[in-house]
């Protein structure tokens, strides 16, 4: 495995690593973000582009926790929903602007991340299921009619007063840029290497003096933050929604499948996953809708059985580095 993490060393990242980081930024990260930013000028369905950008951000956010620590939160949508409702409550109940809404969205998801950080003590499928239960629990709370005065319960939210599709699209692109930077940093800084070393061999990493608990908690909160911001931007962009929308489990599933398909712990893997699979998803939906779910299910199965480490592994297996 050429891309295996080196053991963490004291001090800052070595200069070749840092140079690699700049290269990834200049040749992979920056062009992608620019492309996402100018895409609406090239193609008319802005909402489809917005969903692409949302899933790009979510996939990279999930990559931060799954790619670098091995924790797979099936309930990742919980942070997304917390962000969406953080935004909605700020705008609806406190009559503040979208800027404040985004700040609250960020804060809500990070606080939720902190509350749920004990889940990181669980391993494997237990963590995945517990995080799913947590997202469901949050949905049950938000959608309860008893909270009508705060969240509008099951009756749905309308934020037409701050509706601004162009601005919120650009904000989503900004969130994607942030997630991209984060992944580039994790791939090329000592912290990210240490996380991956810990994922592959927690005992040695602990012996090398890496603070395991703090490290993975930081990754967890960053991952939560990205989903929360994406949720805030989503609420802003679509402006009328129900709890079922903001906590739709398919946000989790899509983010997971896209990330796995491309290849976790790389920068371009999740991007390819989103572009190809979400592109395909929409293409199937438009051309042969009656077999939509069937084809998608078969595709997911084939992916896991024949390409478990993602597209990127086709290249890394041959010794080619994927940014």
């Amino acid at each position: 495995m050429p891309d295996r993490a080196e053991p963490p060393r004291a001090g800052i990242a070595s200069s070749p690593m840092r140079a690699r980081g700049w290269r990834d930024l200049a040749f992979a990260g920056a062009p992608l973000v620019v492309l996402a930013a100018i895409a609406p000028a090239l193609y008319g369905n802005q909402l489809l582009l917005f969903n692409f950008v949302t899933f790009l951000a979510l996939a990279q956010g999930l990559n931060v926790i799954y790619g670098f620590t091995g924790y797979l939160p099936f309930g990742y949508v919980g942070f997304f929903g917390a962000g969406a409702y953080g935004f909605a409550i700020t705008v609806m109940d406190f009559h503040l602007g979208p800027g404040a809404g985004m700040a609250v969205a960020a804060a809500a998801s990070v606080v939720l991340g902190m509350i749920l950080s004990p889940l990181l003590r669980l391993s494997g499928a237990y963590f995945a299921i517990a995080s799913l239960a947590a997202a469901q629990a949050l949905y049950d709370i938000v959608s309860n009619p008893a909270l009508d005065d705060v969240t509008k319960g099951p009756y749905g939210v309308s934020l037409s007063s701050v509706f601004a599709p162009d601005l919120s699209y650009n904000v989503a692109v900004g969130i994607f840029a942030f997630a991209t930077l984060l992944v580039i940093w994790l791939r090329n800084a000592r912290f990210g290497l240490a996380l991956r070393a810990m994922r592959d061999d927690p005992v040695s990493a602990a012996m090398a003096g890496f603070p395991i608990v703090r490290g993975r908690t930081i990754a967890w909160l960053l991952s939560a933050l990205i989903a929360g911001l994406a949720g805030g931007a989503y609420a802003w962009h679509i402006s009328v929604f129900y709890p079922e929308t903001a906590f739709d489990i398919s946000f989790s599933i899509f983010a997971v499948v896209f990330t796995l398909f491309g290849g976790a712990a790389t920068l371009l893997g999740p991007v390819c996953g989103v572009v190809l699979l979400y592109g395909l998803y929409n293409a199937i939906g438009i051309t042969v809708p009656q077999y939509f779910q069937l084809i998608y299910g078969l595709l997911i199965m084939a992916l896991v059985l024949f390409l478990p480490d993602g597209l990127a592994s086709l290249l890394t297996r041959r010794g080619i580095r994927v940014p």
């Binding site: 091995g70 797979l72 099936f74 494997g124 499928a125 995945a128 599933i253 997971v256 499948v257 796995l260 077999y291 939509f292 779910q293 069937l294 998608y296 299910g297 078969l298 595709l299 997911i300 199965m301 992916l303 896991v304 059985l305 478990p308 480490d309």
Partner: peptide
């Protein structure tokens, strides 16, 4: 085949999600 993968336990969630979609469809 699934168990050949590095992270079979996690991947099983995805694989069987795919199967569940197929059955439901």
């Amino acid at each position: 085949r699934l168990q050949l993968a590095r992270d079979a336990e996690m991947l099983s969630l995805i694989l069987f999600f795919g199967l569940s979609q197929v059955i439901e469809a």
